[in-house]
């Protein structure tokens, strides 16, 4: 449904905690700050590049809290051997950005 977001509330609060621990500036994390976190997943860099492209919805080179949750969600799915989609499914677009 329109109101459904694939990032579950318990996931979102976990990802929000990680987001805050990275000390966002004006509510945004730069690529420099996010990169090592995603690299920790040990996923191939080309996969992480796709994750970034899908997550940085406004293409400003930074992730806000919702975009970061999308990135982390995709990383966790990829670790479970689910392929990263080529286009962000509507269920993964944060409700604030629809």
């Amino acid at each position: 449904t329109d109101s459904h977001w694939a990032v579950r509330p318990e996931e979102k609060s976990k990802f929000d905690g990680i987001f805050d621990s990275l000390v966002p500036v004006n509510g945004l994390l730069s690529g420099e700050k996010v990169k090592p976190v995603l690299m920790n997943s040990k996923l191939p860099v080309d996969v992480l590049g796709k994750v970034w492209d899908l997550s940085d919805i406004d293409k400003d080179g930074h992730l806000d809290k919702d975009e970061f949750a999308v990135a982390m969600h995709l990383v966790y799915r990829a670790l479970e051997k689910e392929p990263v989609p080529s286009v962000l499914p509507s269920s993964l677009i944060p409700p604030s950005k629809r």
């Binding site: 690529g31 420099e32 996010v34 990169k35 995603l38 860099v45 080309d46 992480l48 590049g49 970034w52 492209d53 940085d56 293409k59 400003d60 080179g61």
Partner: peptide
């Protein structure tokens, strides 16, 4: 800005 297009905002490229 990002003259190379959106891909240059990607820290993994």
């Amino acid at each position: 800005q990002y003259p190379g297009g959106s891909s240059s905002t990607n820290p993994f490229l």
